[in-house]
């Protein structure tokens, strides 16, 4: 990896200042960025490690919202009783990310900022209609994700927290890619307080995470596994690689959605 300066500020404003410099980049848990740096696919001149900033960590409930700090690790979310009580789907999701060591370092902010098409968190953020809070603004999940590895974050913008509306029920059904064990095609299903159903799909789309309207409509009017059977999921727009064809991914969207429905009924 190319060399760079390393700083580890303990408060957000210092981090934001440091990120204003040319070639500065934020480091969350490093579980994506470090492998990328090893491949020399990125060449920051300064890495600003966010892991020393306490205000970015933590989980709290605010009314009908669950707020997770941008620097909170997957492991902390998976182990949180508050999360389990409010959004069990997030516990399922985080406890299936990578392995214990990855979960001890990787953060929600890093995962969302990276927007890997096979990452897990984006499905939850989109399905739950989360709000991504940065040091500059609040962004609706719908606007945040902009295709493969792309988000609307600006240079130096830091995800400080993610606000999730607490649904009536939620679950995450992951189907793993056989090698990386990321999502080959996974579904986050949320039954909202108003009875509407939202289905976030990750791993499948050629443009990254998406919501499946057909499934959402069918399940909003009839929340049952058989309702899923009646929906046709098109292979169009699904990605194609060594591990899955578009047709196979389309099939998995249905199968995982059915399992999700069964899991919460």
């Amino acid at each position: 990896m190319y060399n760079f300066d390393f700083t580890r500020p303990t408060d957000l404003s210092a981090a934001v200042d440091a990120l204003r410099g040319d070639g500065a980049q934020a480091l969350g848990g490093g579980q994506t960025l470090i492998p990328v740096l090893k491949q020399r696919l990125a060449a920051p001149t300064t890495l600003v490690d966010l892991s020393g900033i306490d205000s970015l960590k933590g989980i709290r409930r605010m009314g009908d919202m669950l707020v997770i700090g941008g620097g909170t690790t997957h492991g902390a979310v998976a182990a949180s009783g508050d999360v389990a009580a409010a959004i069990p789907g997030l516990v399922q999701l985080t406890s299936k990310i990578g392995d214990p060591q990855v979960r001890n370092r990787g953060t929600i902010g890093g995962s969302l900022a990276n927007n890997d098409p096979a990452a897990c968190y984006p499905a939850a953020a989109l399905a739950l209609g989360a709000t991504i809070e940065t040091n500059q603004r609040e962004i609706a999940a719908e606007d945040f994700f902009q295709g493969l590895y792309a988000t609307c974050l600006e240079d130096g913008e830091v995800i400080t927290a993610v606000k999730f509306p607490i649904p009536a029920a939620s679950t995450y059904q992951k189907f793993e890619q056989p090698a990386s064990r990321f999502s080959l095609t996974s579904v986050f299903l949320a039954k909202m307080q108003d009875g509407s159903v939202r289905v976030g799909v990750t791993g499948a789309g050629a443009d990254g995470v998406f919501r499946h309207e057909g499934l959402e409509q069918a399940l909003s009017s009839d929340f049952s596994a058989s309702a899923v059977d009646g929906v046709s999921v098109s292979a169009e727009g699904m990605s194609n690689d060594l591990h899955a064809t578009p047709e196979y991914r389309a099939n998995l969207v249905k199968v995982m959605t059915k399992r999700a429905v069964e899991a919460v009924t």
């Binding site: 056989p178 090698a179 990386s180 060594l242």
Partner: peptide
């Protein structure tokens, strides 16, 4: 069940790391 050192038609090793070459866990 898992392992496959797949090449594409240009001779690139598609399964060139543990991200695509599935090791038994």
């Amino acid at each position: 069940m898992l392992e496959n050192a797949a090449y594409d038609e240009h001779g690139q090793l598609v399964a060139g790391s543990y991200m695509d070459y599935a090791m038994p866990l």
